[in-house]
Simulated scan of single mutants.
Amino acid sequence: MNKRSLVNVGGIATVIGAGVVGVGVGTVLAGIARSALRAELAVDDGPDDLLTAPDSAPHRLPVRSSDGTVLNVEIYGSDDAADDDGDVIVMVHGWTCNTAYWYPQINHLASSEGGRRRVVVYDQRGHGLSERGLRRPTIAMLGQDLDAVLEAAVPAGRRAILVGHSMGGMTIMSWAGQYPEKVGSRVSAVVLVSTAAKGVLENHTLVPVDLPAYARPFAPVVAKAFTSMPVPIPKTPYGVRISHYIALGPHARKAHVDFVDEMIGACPPRARAGWGSAMGKLDVTPGLAALSVPTTVVVGTEDRLTPRTHAEQMAEVLRRNGSLRDLVVYQGVGHMTSIEAAERFNEMLDDLVAEVSRAEQRVS
């Protein structure tokens, strides 16, 4: 066979290979879309008052992280120590979200019903009103940003109750791994919500189980493309159905689905892709092991992005270390746990805050 024939054969093989990949990826995408469009419609039972913007505007505190990137930090609740001298609740949102994710908790905790607690939330870099920065996103960077927020927003002599959802939970574990000496002195308790310590792209359940055998090897390709491609998300009725399938439980309220879809769509494509790519290299197990304070792990049974197996693995590590407070599992709830199950989640936070207060009173 001459050289030209070899080139032709190679070219044909490349075309065939690309065609096979295209068919496989297309089949996976079609399977996800089919499952999303066949799922039940969200329950339209009216608005959810907990999702409204808080009545009181926050105090905005620009915080400069270690590399100079400015983060948008918002502080709710009274600044008067006489009103609230307890631990500060610091809440860290997840991938493609922003500070509005925590509205159901802010509206409760900063109210008289929730004890008018001091609540600190911030936009992860590249999300909301925070700068994206010049460096390539890394998981270590998340922990460094949290450290800057804690130093700036938690008054001297007070500790924080850290609550992190999805990438926010990874942020807390990243911080603990880099600053283990600060865990006990700066933090009194931790809540890890719908998150993972490693293998987040390998263990999702977005892909239907009934795919043809030839398409299954292409599922990781689709997962990587889904998380790391910087393309705008089109606003269509079908797009809302996809958001529902991916991020919320099958019986989610329409108000919740619309709120989440709007929030995800507002995330800049470059930030979404950069942080999605960073999570592909996730391993914050040293930080998980460094959590020496009472830690609660929360997950929904219908979470497709960080399924229950992640929560159980994290809980087992914490149990062995003696720092597991509780493993909380919400039936029928998807990835957006503290929105979908806001009332139950807020009750859990109230109990946790009360426990921390009693423990500190005994020590004092």
Rank of each mutant, 00 (worst) to 15 (best):
E181H: 09
R362G: 01
R117T: 08
R241M: 09
N203K: 13
L150C: 07
S111T: 13
H204N: 15
R158D: 06
G11N: 04
V149S: 13
A13P: 05
D145Q: 06
V191R: 09
I12K: 10
Q144W: 08
M167C: 03
M263N: 08
V222P: 02
G22D: 07
N72I: 04
S228V: 05
R320Y: 08
P217V: 02
G334K: 01
V353W: 01
V190C: 05
D83W: 06
N321V: 00
E347A: 11
V284W: 07
E355C: 10
D83T: 13
I172N: 07
R118G: 13
M229K: 08
K198R: 14
P58M: 09
G26R: 02
P137I: 05
D55K: 14
T52E: 15
T27H: 02
L162Y: 12
M173H: 06
A33R: 15
G114L: 05
G11M: 13
A219I: 06
T301F: 07
A266S: 15
P286F: 14
A153K: 09
H59P: 00
S174V: 05
A189S: 11
A315C: 08
A255N: 05
D145W: 08
A213E: 10
K281G: 01
I246M: 13
Q144N: 12
M314Y: 04
S277K: 12
D351A: 13
R117C: 08
E113W: 01
T138E: 11
T285I: 10
E360I: 03
S323W: 03
Q331H: 10
V299C: 15
V260F: 10
V43K: 14
A219H: 08
G280T: 04
R135L: 14
V90K: 09
I339E: 00
D83Y: 06
R125M: 09
I264E: 06
W175Q: 07
R325S: 12
P269H: 02
L162F: 11
D44C: 02
M141T: 14
